[in-house]
């Protein structure tokens, strides 16, 4: 139960960070992606701020064997660079550019009462289910 509570807390703080950063607003994200127009570099600073802190967190985590709640620390060990990674990321970027939403801000904007965000997230879940349909036979 503690585990779920701290998971909730991390999601909450993450969401508040997105709001402060202005990234829950798709127009701002599109402003960043509009590199040939009037370019708003803010998103770079968001990533910079997050990575600056994250860098030390991951260094600290790699020196520990267990999390503070006593669970194993799960850090991805997949190093493969293949079509799945690049093709998937290219598709994601296309959708990101079209709507100005990536998964986190889409969920936060639902909480802000944006009906369009609800539509985006439902479509995103449909996309994830589509992935399960395409991918599952190969997996088993």
């Amino acid at each position: 139960m503690n585990y779920a509570f701290f998971s909730f807390l991390a999601g909450l703080v993450f969401g508040i960070g997105l709001i402060i950063a202005g990234m829950a607003n798709p127009a701002k994200v599109v402003g960043f992606l509009d590199i040939t127009g009037e370019w708003d570099p803010s998103l770079m600073f968001v990533m910079g701020g997050a990575i600056l802190i994250g860098f030390f967190a991951f260094r600290l985590a790699s020196a520990k064997s267990k999390s503070l709640l006593g669970f194993g620390i799960k850090i991805p060990d997949n190093k493969r660079i293949d079509m799945r990674l690049v093709g998937g990321s290219l598709l994601f970027g296309m959708g990101w550019g079209l709507g100005g939403f990536c998964p986190g801000p889409g969920l936060v904007a639902i909480g802000a009462g944006e009906v369009k965000a609800v539509v985006f997230v439902i479509a995103m879940i449909a996309g994830m289910l589509l992935f399960e349909v395409i991918d599952r036979p190969k997996l088993r």
């Binding site: 701290f6 703080v13 202005g22 998103l43 990533m47 802190i53 967190a57 503070l68 194993g72 620390i73």
Partner: peptide
């Protein structure tokens, strides 16, 4: 429309959230 300070600060809060999740939940 460029907001470097709130972007950097919001980013840092996102960094804190990922740190919490990594060190407390291990994910």
């Amino acid at each position: 429309s460029f907001t470097p300070y709130s972007a950097l600060f919001g980013g840092a809060v996102i960094g804190i959230a990922t740190t919490m999740f990594l060190l407390i939940n291990g994910r």
